[in-house]
Amino acid sequence: MTQEHTWQGTVAIVTGGSSGIGKATALALAEHGAKVLITGRSEEKLQEVSALKKTIEPFQADSADPETGERLVAEATSQWGRLDLVVNNAGAGQPLPIDAYEADVIASMSAVNIIAPSQLVKAARPALRETRGAIVNIGTAVSRNAAPMLAHYAATKAALEHLTRSWAIELAGDGIRVNAVAPGPVKSGALTGMMGLPEVIARQIEAQETDQIPLGRRGLPSDIVPWILQLGSPENAWLTGQILTIDGGWSLRT
């Protein structure tokens, strides 16, 4: 079965779909015939992505808003009448040494990385039950080892992985599969975007990480997207509760 046949006529929600892995995932799904609702905080970036494919619709939203999940599902189902896939890709993180711990910063990361996916899964359950759909969560290989300065980012993503396994059991009776990918260092703009690092420091970190990757290079969104589609595909109807680390061997060395 080709990917075009697999996704033709299906409907997906991709959070954080205006850049990086989320953007690449949305474009791939649309290329294979799916209708995709993407979220992000920048209306300009959302419009740029939606202009690339007629079947991608933008939805400006802040994932930290607890009402976003219900609004997304309502938008997707009202436009297209169904929902087959949810990709919880939106993430929040920043370098945070212990002396700089602030409750609001930690709470913000938790809101995006834990609460937002939880609320979206809750809202999407009835629609996904009807299609026997799937959920793919995006974690991080950073959580595989100690993460000085990134402890709360890694911890909240590790929590998402635990939720993945728990949801897989809770939703199995509905025929809904739940899996996750945990990317390693990927050229996605996250260091200067989500992490808010200056360009010079971001380039230094990229060079350091590249030296640590056994396969000799940083990843690309195109290294991750095929696995997101595979985990979300109805072809893999007996696969659930799995977390796939895709990092060029990076987590084996760090």
Rank of each mutant, 00 (worst) to 15 (best):
M1G: 14
M1H: 07
T2G: 09
H5Q: 15
H5L: 15
T6E: 14
T6K: 04
Q8S: 15
G9C: 12
T10F: 05
V11H: 05
V14Q: 05
T15K: 07
G17Y: 12
G17C: 12
I21M: 09
G22W: 09
K23P: 06
T25N: 09
A34R: 02
V36R: 08
G40H: 07
L46G: 07
Q47K: 15
S50F: 07
A51S: 10
K54C: 01
P58I: 07
P58V: 04
A61N: 01
S63E: 14
T68K: 05
E70W: 13
A76T: 10
Q79C: 13
G81Q: 13
L83R: 02
L85S: 03
L85E: 01
N88S: 14
P95M: 03
I98F: 05
Y101E: 02
A103F: 13
I106N: 00
M109V: 09
V112R: 03
I114E: 10
Q119C: 11
K122C: 02
K122G: 01
A124S: 11
A124K: 01
L128T: 01
E130N: 13
T131Q: 06
R132F: 10
G133R: 00
V142T: 06
S143Q: 12
R144V: 01
A146V: 13
L150V: 00
A155R: 01
A155Y: 01
E161G: 09
W167T: 08
A168F: 14
I169R: 14
L171P: 08
A172W: 03
R177N: 04
R177H: 06
V178A: 13
V186D: 00
M194C: 07
M195I: 10
A202S: 08
I205V: 06
E206A: 14
E209L: 15
T210E: 15
G216N: 12
R217I: 13
R217V: 11
G219F: 07
L220C: 02
P226D: 04
W227M: 12
L229S: 02
S233E: 02
A237D: 10
T240S: 15
T245R: 03
R253K: 08
